[in-house]
Each structure stands twice: as C-alpha cells, then as structure tokens.
Write a protein that binds this DNA or RNA. Structure first.
Length: 209
DNA sequence: AATAGCGCCAACCGCCGCCTA
DNA sequence: ATAGGCGGCGGTTGGCGCTAT
C-alpha cells in the first residue's frame, strides 16, 4: 500500500530541541497527557513531527528518567541481558526502568561494545573471538554437550525476559527490576559458552568485569 | 593557538506489527 | 479480508565538545 511519511515534512522543525519547545511539550503532556502523538504538536503549539515529540518526551522529558553515568550494576545487567536477547534495547530498557532504550543503545555502542572487543570478546555473541569464527547469535551446535543445556536455559530465559518485559510495559512499576535481579542471579554465564570463556571461576558473567 | 581526529549522544529515518474501520 | 493509521523499535547520522598533534 505504501506508507506515507509520519507527518508532512514541509515547515516542520528538525534538529535539537530548544528550552522553549521542551517547556511547551512538557506543559502540554503534564496537563492533558500525550493521547494521540500525531495531534500533540498542533495542540502544544509546536512545529514538530509527532514522532519527534514522542521521542523527546520518552528520551528526555519524562519525569522518572535517570540520567548520567551507568552504575556497575546497570552495566552488568545490560551485558547480561544483551547476551541473552541481543539488540533488543526496548526489552533491556524494561529491566532498567529509569533508563531509555536509546540511552542504553548509546551506552552499549560507545562503551560496552568497545570494552568487550578490547577483552577479545565478540560483542554480538559474547564469545571469545578466535580465528574469525563469528557465529550468529544462538549458534550452539559446535559446543560441548555441557554447554547445550546452558544454551537452552539462555534461550528459554531470553524468551521469558521478553515476555516479562512486555508484561511490565502493561503494568508500570511492576517491580520488574527485582525480578530481573532474581533472574540475573540464576542465569549462568553467556549463552552458548565456548570452552574458552573467560568466566570460569564462578560461572557468572559478573566475574568478567 | 590552530586544527584535525575522535567519541559521545540526541535526534532522525525507515520499517514493522498491531489495531480499527 | 484488507487498507490505512499509529506507536514502537532498531539502525544510523550529524553536530558538538574534548583531546592530541
């Protein structure tokens, strides 16, 4: 059918938001809620696309957003969840309620990814990089039998986390962070561990860092 | 002091899935 | 059954600030 652009691009402002625009959007959403995002710019008196307003609200203006440096715990949670889920930023973000998917994605790309590479780990599979044998996420077939169970657990946990994240979106503040804490204590190291995994001591990814 | 290079991050883009008429 | 609208997601980009030369 061919989708039209999210909004008429003529005359709409792009680029960084000004304090005045922020105030208008903030005031509007506080007073009336966002409702239909497409109608927000007109009602709030903004020359912006509805998508742009939504993004600005979610990533910056929403009151419960935690900004600034990631704690070691958050760092570990992201790594652990990424090992299970891959680039499912929204699901990972659901387990860090005060962080946005965009922020987590940026943090991953600019920080964790490089750190893993420096450590000789493939940032996609979280496995030791060796002789260029990059495996797509989930490729477990060539690993010892002991690891097959770990792989299954990881896959199962991944699916569960995804379902849980979806659930937590429906129930705001459902305490998913506590749940994720529980999960993280239970999950073994990276899925599909190779025998060269660096986490040999206690068999948890936490020990890597 | 000037400038080139690099890293970070806010914001955009395009696609997808869900919902409704 | 399907066309169209909308929200949401992940990948990418551009600009700004910091650092190295």
């Amino acid at each position: 059918m061919g989708r039209v652009a999210c909004c008429e691009k003529v005359g709409l402002k792009k680029g960084p938001w000004t304090p005045d625009e922020d105030k208008k959007l903030l005031d509007y959403v506080r007073n009336y809620g966002h409702g239909n995002w497409r109608s927000v710019p007109a009602k709030a008196g903004l020359q912006r696309c509805g998508k742009s307003c939504r993004l600005r609200w979610i990533n910056y203006l929403k009151p419960d957003i935690k900004r600034g440096n990631f704690s070691a715990e958050e760092d570990h949670t992201i790594i652990q969840l990424h090992a299970l889920l891959g680039n499912k930023w929204s699901i990972i973000a659901a387990h860090l309620p005060q962080r946005t998917d965009n922020e987590i994605k940026n943090y991953w790309n600019t920080n964790i990814k490089k750190r893993l590479i420096r450590m000789g780990l493939d940032p996609i599979t979280h496995k030791k990089i060796e002789n260029n044998t990059f495996e797509p996420f989930g490729g477990c077939h060539e690993y010892p039998k002991d690891n097959i169970n770990i792989c299954h657990v990881a896959q199962w946990e991944g699916a569960r986390l995804e379902a849980e994240a979806r659930g937590s979106k429906l129930q705001v503040g459902s305490g998913s962070s506590q749940l994720s804490g529980l999960i993280l204590r239970k999950i073994p190291t990276q899925p599909c561990l190779s025998s060269h995994s660096v986490s040999t001591k206690n068999n948890t990814a936490y020990n890597i860092f």
